[in-house]
Simulated scan of single mutants.
Amino acid sequence: MIRLQNLRKNYTVQGKTVPALMGIDLTIEKGEIFGIIGHSGAGKSTLIRCINMLERPTSGHVIVDGVDLTTLDDRKLQEQRRQIGMIFQHFNLLSSATVAENVAFPLKLAKRPKAEIDKKVNELLTLVGLEAHRDKYPSQLSGGQKQRVGIARALASDPKVLLCDEATSALDPQTTNSILALLLDINRKLGLTIVLITHEMHVIRSICDRVGVIDGGVIVEEGKVLDVFLKPQHPTTREFVEQVADSAELREVVAHEKAAGDQTIVRITFLGEKTYQPILFQTMQETGTMFSILQGTISRMKDTPYGQLVVELSGNPEQNSRAIETLRQRGLEVEVM
C-alpha cells in the first residue's frame, strides 16, 4: 500500500543543510495500523508529511497504492491526496463552522452534490458518535470531541490511507483510549490503512500491528509490535519500552535481591492463551522449586494477551535449571537476568 524508497529530506537553516530524513526504506501493508515512534526532533512528523507530500522529499520515492507521488504535477497530486486523509494534534478545525460544516468542508471543495454531502456527513457523524453535536461549534466541544470531528472530516473523501500526526498527545489518558478505540474500529470496519506517529509507547501497544522506531532521521528498528516491545534491540527502543514496563523500578528490585544472595532471577513471558494458564505454578510444583514473584503484569497488545513475571527461584541449582528448561518446553520464554 505504502512504499518509501531511500527517502531523504533536507532543510536549509542559515545557509547550512540540515538533514531531517536520511534514506528511509519502509513498506506499510494494506489494512494494517503502522506506528512510527520517536523523540521530538527525530524526524517522525517530517516523515508522515512526506507521505502525503505536504513536505516534498529532497530525494527518493513515495509510492501510495502503486502511484509514485514524487513524479506527479500539482494537479495530479491534488487528486491523489483525496485518497489520503490526515488528522492533527491540534485538530485544525474551522472555528466559525459547525461540526457538520467542518465535516462537509472537503466535500464542498470537491463540489459534490448537496444531497450526497448531507448523506455522507450523517454517516460519518454516526460513525464517530457525534450525531447529537452536529450543530455545535468547536468551542463548545471537548478535546476528544474535536478530534472525532477531525477524524470524520479526514474520512469524508473515502480515503484509502489515514495519517495520524500525534493525534492523541493533546488529550488526557481516558480520552486518548477512546480515540484509539475509535481508530481501531474504523480500521476494522473500513479496511483503512492507518499510519500513526507518536512519542508514547502506550499508543503503539494499544492498536498497532507493526512499528518503526525513528531516531536521528533513520529507522533504527522495525517489526511486529509484540517482537519490538518484548525484545527491544536498539537503545532508543528500550527507552520507549521503559515508559510502560517499570524497568527502572525492576532494575532496583533485581539489584537488591542479587545483593542479598545467589538466587536465580528470571523474566518469564507468556503470550496468547498461555497468559491465563497456571503453567508457572504447575512447573514449580513438579520440579519442587520454591519461587517468589518480584514483579508482574498482564496486559494486551492490540488483540494479543501477554504477561511478564519476574521471578526469584529459591531451589538448588539443579532444581532451578530443570524448572527453567520445563518452562521453555511448555512454550514460555525465559530470560535469566
Rank of each mutant, 00 (worst) to 15 (best):
L309W: 14
H39K: 04
S206P: 05
V241F: 03
L230V: 09
K136H: 14
L4I: 04
E222W: 07
V149G: 03
L180A: 09
E239S: 14
G23T: 05
P305M: 06
Q263R: 14
Q282L: 13
P113N: 14
A260N: 13
Q329S: 07
V67Y: 07
S321M: 05
A20T: 04
A181Q: 03
E242S: 15
T287A: 02
S142V: 03
G272F: 11
I24G: 08
R148P: 01
L250H: 10
H61Q: 03
S139H: 12
R210V: 01
T176I: 03
V225F: 02
V64H: 15
I279D: 13
G143E: 05
N10E: 12
N92A: 06
S206I: 00
L125Q: 02
C208Q: 04
H133P: 09
E273T: 06
V67R: 11
V213L: 15
L94T: 08
I197M: 04
T71R: 09
S292D: 11
S178L: 03
A154P: 08
V334P: 08
E252H: 09
L250S: 08
G331Q: 02
V64A: 10
L313N: 06
A248E: 07
T168L: 00
A167K: 04
L107D: 00
A104M: 02
E257N: 06
G35W: 02
V334Y: 01
G150M: 11
